[in-house]
């Protein structure tokens, strides 16, 4: 366990939207094959933190390291960086004008320049993996929310990212569809994928998370193993949040 390599490191990250200071001095390290779960009330900054990690939002201060390398807009092509950091959105954001398979092979072909036959073969494998082997050629509008989110996961995986970010992946789903997405994510974690997950699913956080991060008002209040955070939180604010959601 000691020779794991560092995938993401965030050092004194700050982010403001105008006068609103949404991330305050965030420090966070994510090691290879770890699952880090961000929890906290809405507006606590967890989604913004996630979006800063793949530069959909630009930080105002601090540093972000990927594989130990400091990432900067001026020294790196952020498009290349984003290929290495997969993202799954709350509202899926599938491409409605493309079929399920079309969604998955879009970026491998047009960003990585993979050959089409190969991209299709890999894409089908990924769709099989997330249990959508019979949905290659349908359009996203015909799918349930849970199926859509699994397509979105396959689409992100198709770029072979080093780390996957999940931004409340089950919040827009009907309750009966949450399970299928969480179990796909759990499988992914078991295969050793490095993951950062923003979620309100405390069961998932406890069962799958290696680390749980509690955020409040733009700060990381507490960081620990799931049983520490859920069973014996050190901070009063963590305790009251946990008791309000469990």
């Amino acid at each position: 366990m000691d020779n794991k390599k560092e995938i993401i490191r965030v050092d004194q990250l700050n982010k403001s939207f105008g006068d609103l200071h949404v991330l305050k001095d965030i420090d966070l390290t994510v090691m290879e094959s770890e699952v880090v779960v961000l929890i906290g009330a809405s507006g606590s900054g967890k989604s913004t933190l996630l979006r800063c990690l793949n530069f959909l939002e630009m930080k105002n201060g601090g540093e972000i390291f990927l594989d130990g390398e400091k990432i900067n807009k001026s020294t790196h092509d952020l498009n290349d960086i984003r290929q290495r950091v997969g993202m799954v959105f709350q509202h899926f954001n599938l491409f409605p004008h493309k079929t399920v398979l079309g969604n998955v092979i879009e970026a491998p072909i047009h960003v990585k320049g993979e050959n089409k036959a190969n991209a299709i073969k890999e894409g089908k494998k990924l769709l099989d993996k997330v249990g959508l082997e019979d949905k290659y050629d349908v359009y996203p509008s015909t799918l349930s929310g849970g199926q859509k989110q699994r397509v979105a996961i396959a689409r992100a995986l198709a770029m072979k990212p080093e780390v996957m970010l999940f931004d409340e992946p089950t919040s827009a789903l009907d309750p009966e569809l949450v399970g299928e997405v969480l179990s796909t994510m759990k499988e992914l974690a078991e295969e050793g994928m490095t993951m950062v997950v923003v979620t309100h699913e405390m069961g998932f956080a406890r069962e799958v998370g290696d680390w749980v991060v509690y955020m409040h008002d733009g700060r990381i209040i507490e960081y620990g193993h799931p049983n520490e955070i859920f069973d014996q939180p050190r901070e009063e604010r963590t305790r009251s949040f946990i008791s309000s959601v469990l």
């Binding site: 959909l56 984003r82 997969g86 959105f89 879009e106 047009h110």
Partner: peptide
Amino acid sequence: GQREAGRSLGMS
């Protein structure tokens, strides 16, 4: 979200 999805996949 469409733009963000494209960008998150590394598209320019």
